[in-house]
Structure formats: C-alpha cells, structure tokens
Amino acid sequence: MTRTRPNALKVLASAMAAATLLTGCSLKEPRPEIAPVVAQSSNPQAEHKLDNVPSLKGKKVGIAAKDILHDYSRVVYQQIQERIKELGGEVIATQAEAKDEKHVSDVENLITQSPDAIVVILGDAQTLTPALAKVDAAGIPLFTIDFQSEYSKNNVTSDNWNVGTTLARTMAEDLHGKGKILVFNGFPGVTPCRIRYNSLNLVLEDYPNIEKITPELQDKYEGTIEDAKNQIQDQLRRLPEGEVDAIWSCWDMPLIGAAQAIDPTGGDIKLYGVDAEPGALDLIANPDSSYQFTVAQPTKQIAAASATNIALFLDGQTDLVPSTSYAEPIFVDKDNVNQVRHDNGI
C-alpha cells in the first residue's frame, strides 16, 4: 500500500520546519512542539487544489457514518455532505447512531441504490467488513474516513501514528518518566483507537518507570461521560491516595467524565486525550482543571480531502488518489488552547 500525503501537507510540514528553525527551537526537545495552527482555509495552495477538483454533477454518493455522537464525527459528517453538494453531487446520508447493526444495514441499503461511490466514516472493522465486501462485489468504489479497509480506494485520516506517539510522549515527559497511569483501552476494532493504543504501549517501552494500573478501564461508546466519571470515582476510592498520576484515553469523551470526577477533589492527576471535543477544550482552558492535552483534527480538511479523492476517482484520475491521505493534527495544551480555538473556530 502506498502512503502519500497531499502536497498541501508537505508545504505545511516545510513551513513547520522553517518556523522551528526561525524560532530557534531545538529539535532534540523530547516533547514535540505544538504544531502551528494552520487550517486548510488558510493554506492558499490547498485552496487552489480544491478549486481544481472535477465536478460531481450527476454523481450520487452514499455516506454511512458510524455516529454523530461526538464533535469530530458530527462535523466530518456534515462537512463531507456540504463539500459533495458544492461539487455538484447528490448525497444519500445515513448515520448509525453508534449501532453496529444499523451501520451494517445502512451500508446494505446504500448498495441497493447503486450509488457512484460510498463513503464510510468511522466504524468497526470486524462487524463492517462483510458488508464492505458486498460493496466491492457490487462494483461500487468505497472511500473511508478514519477507517482502514482492504476494500477502500482511499482512506482519509489523521496521522494516528503521529497523534498516538505524541500523545504518549507528552504524557510521559510531563510525568518526568515516572508514575502510574490509568488507561481507558478504547475500541480495538476502531483503527484510530487501535493505532493510538499501540503507540502508547510502544512509547512506554522507553519509559520503564511508568506503570499502567491494571485492570485497564473499558470505555463505553454511549453514555461515555457519565460511565467514565463513575469508573474514575470508583478507582479513586479503590486505590491509595496519590497512586494515580495520569489518565490516558484514545478519545476525549471518557476524560471529560474523568475530569468531572477529579477536578472537584483538587487531585493532582493529569489527563491526556484526543479529538478536541469542545468540552475538553473548555477544561484545558481552565488552569485549575486536570485536563492537560488533546489533539484537534482538521475536520474540514479531512472531509474536503475525501470529497476531492472521490471526484478525482470518478473522473478517471485514479492515479492521483492515494491509498491513504493524511491530515496533519493540531496538538493542544494549556498554553495554546485559546489560540487554537480562536484560529480554528472550535
């Protein structure tokens, strides 16, 4: 599988490197610098590329999203619909309310309509793969967002290896390489979570004095915040005071609940998540909150990139469509949270 990044991102990476040199930051710094906040709309080259996208007029695109329960999936779901319509295409949009069975049914129902392409946004690889095999068998090009599939012509995703290792290294450095952490072990069937969790384990190999408290915590996809709050309250009662130094999760939702459990107690426990949920950003912006770090994903850029790849593919320009298109993440901490929110409108 070839992995390429859009040209816009190469320019962005070059700009980051130049900025690093100009500001005199050391590349030996173990904790990665917070990425410059550059949304797609502020990148002229990216705008130019989008302007040259082939029309989708007369094309019908089915969308099967896993859910719109959290901000990331909701915005991507809305944005890709808007982008396809802007390009002249017709959209058939479904979202499965986080139900695996409905997600499979949605894909099956889309196949029936013989659309020109189907886009799957998030999902569980195990339960969805048989339905995606039907998409492939029906000769319908499949595109995915944050979902790795052997049947996908193109998957647009954040660079979750970068996200995962940066998240883990940031936490490890904040703990000065020593401490005990609670881990919400996420959803192994969901590709971004699996990569981030594996990245955590990889990073911790180099931090032998950071110990994961067992058993790991299991997060729920629905009622996540309340469930996580209860779980953390239970853990704080179970474990000796001061035993927990940090909590890690592959997404923000459980940590919002964790912060609700920890912040009123004034405990010195640091929280690290991903997705830049508005609730998480509010907490990070609060200097008294335990929430330290999250990662924003450029949702508009992700949606636009997927629509672009669909248009290129259906226009016959398949050689311009990479197997994977990576979007550059934006790392958010207490120092830059207000700036990131201001610049990106999140």
């Binding site: 139900k99 695996d100 069975e101 499979v104 569980d124 195990q126 339960t127 793969t129 048989p130 069937g189 729920k220 996809y221 629905e222």
Partner: peptide, 16 residues
C-alpha cells in the same frame, strides 16, 4: 446477530 455482524458486540442487547 453474531453471524450477521461476524462478531459478538458487547451491549448490543440494549440497542435491539
């Protein structure tokens, strides 16, 4: 349902 989804999914009972 397990055969349909090719997996047993925790919590699916409340969904159906």
């Amino acid at each position: 349902l397990v055969a349909r989804l090719s997996a047993a999914v925790p919590g699916i009972g409340t969904q159906i």
